[in-house]
């Protein structure tokens, strides 16, 4: 057995600011994870199709446009409806603290806000998988 943790990093919606998403992708790679990077302007449908085909353990969503309350839950709902509710969804971007409770309730398991260090993301992943990447 030689299981690798696989993670989709995606930008839903129309927002083109990909500095954060690319940083996370690269940092997760350096931490030993296999990261599938989809690029910008992804619909929730294409993110979910990607996550399922790639058989990932996590989906990380990055969004700075403020459309997170609409788009993040949609990804979770689609995963659930396609029998892939076991895939863990987390998110990041310009997200007000007052939205965190709502997003959590809708199945986004963690939100990383501006300034959150990558170590927080990694400990979250480790806590969910019970192991480290390498």
């Amino acid at each position: 057995m030689n299981k690798k943790i696989r993670i989709v990093i995606a930008k839903p919606g129309l927002d083109g600011h990909d500095r954060g998403a690319k940083y996370i992708a690269r940092a997760l790679k350096d931490a030993g994870y296999e990261v599938i990077y989809t690029g910008i302007r992804q619909t929730p449908e294409s993110i979910v199709a990607t996550a399922i085909q790639e058989d990932v353990d996590f989906v990380g969503l990055s969004l700075l446009s403020g459309a997170h309350n609409e788009l993040f839950p949609r990804v979770v709902d689609l995963l659930n409806s396609q029998n892939a509710g076991d895939i863990v969804v987390f998110g990041g971007g310009v997200i007000p603290e007052e939205d965190l409770a709502f997003l959590k309730e809708r199945g986004i398991e963690a939100i990383f806000r501006p300034g959150a260090p990558i170590s927080e993301v990694i400990s979250f992943i480790e806590s969910k998988t019970g192991s480290t990447a390498a």
Partner: peptide
């Protein structure tokens, strides 16, 4: 494709 983004930024 505009869903969720209208009037946001």
């Amino acid at each position: 494709i505009s869903a969720g983004e209208v009037g946001k930024v």
